[in-house]
Design a binder for these strands. Structure first.
Lengths: 158, 158
DNA sequence: TATTGTTATACTCTATAACTATA
DNA sequence: TATAGTTATAGAGTATAACAATA
């Protein structure tokens, strides 16, 4: 029995369930990325640039890759040094940077892609493809439902 | 169109879907924890101790709270200083520490509990209670299925 | 010889604020 | 006055290895 009694059991906790699931999934991807010297976050930046069919600003990149602006800014420095990304200036707004995938970044993605897809298909085969689709859809619904909420967290705490 | 073409689109990525969902959910919990000076990870340690009906070793705590041993070891030092946890020795194995919730830790959980439950019920009301149950069950299935796999990530990368 | 836990190290991300240069 | 991006700073977690004590 719980000592406090007013919290739901750990195995009914959504944050922990999501964390465990993500760790289980990443356990299949991280070794692949690690062999190429890419962190999770760098990979999300590369994926975001690859998925967008246009250059992205730093702010857009932060949104797409689930990172904070200062984190992206710092990461971009190192990724630019390695040729993974290239930096340009927006034509109409001089404040805005314009980030694109660099040649080495594209090569890196091409090198990682096949193993990543194999890991993904393995996960699909374990879950069943329709289960995976349905899970992704539910996660999106959850995210959308909670993001559109008028910050219901501002209530006072006892 | 994607530059490389052999990766699934970002919105079909399970790691990113799980990350976004977790961030959306934690967006409702983190402000509550923050007002009490508790980090996500510290909260998971407190929850794990509260949920277990017996003292836990450092290693068990790391498992239950999804953390690494060295992280737990370091966190425990600070949490002990604040009286959130207490440290004892196992009777039969002198190597093994025995961690329990301290009085201040219990008080902290009691203070946070109501707001946490309110946030949780808000999430339930947005999703519907059965949707939440079903999502938790699917996440557990996913975790179990992937954790039991014989490390299919060891394949060579091109 | 293996295990429990701690310490050390290097790296990275988070989070916030302050700053710049534009708009 | 607001926005885009950078820099600075403090804090914390990750990951690995090395180590001490014990089994």
């Amino acid at each position: 029995m719980s000592a406090t009694g007013d919290l739901r059991p750990l195995d009914r906790s959504l944050p922990i369930g999501l964390l465990r699931a993500r760790e289980a999934v990443m356990g299949h991807f991280r070794p692949i990325l690690g062999r190429h010297g890419v962190t999770d976050q760098q990979w999300r930046v590369l994926r975001a640039l690859d998925a967008a069919d246009r250059p992205l600003s730093v702010g857009e990149l932060a949104d797409h890759a689930c990172l904070l602006g200062p984190s992206v800014s710092r990461m971009l420095r190192g990724m630019e040094d390695r040729g993974w990304i290239a930096r340009g200036q927006d034509d109409t707004d001089a404040r805005r940077a314009v980030i694109t995938l660099g040649a080495d970044g594209r090569a890196l993605m091409a090198a990682i892609g096949p193993a990543s897809e194999r890991a993904y298909r393995h996960i699909e085969s374990v879950l069943g493809p329709s289960e995976l689709d349905s899970l992704l859809a539910r996660l999106d619904e959850l995210t959308a439902a909670l993001d559109h909420v008028d910050t219901g967290d501002t209530e006072e705490v006892a």
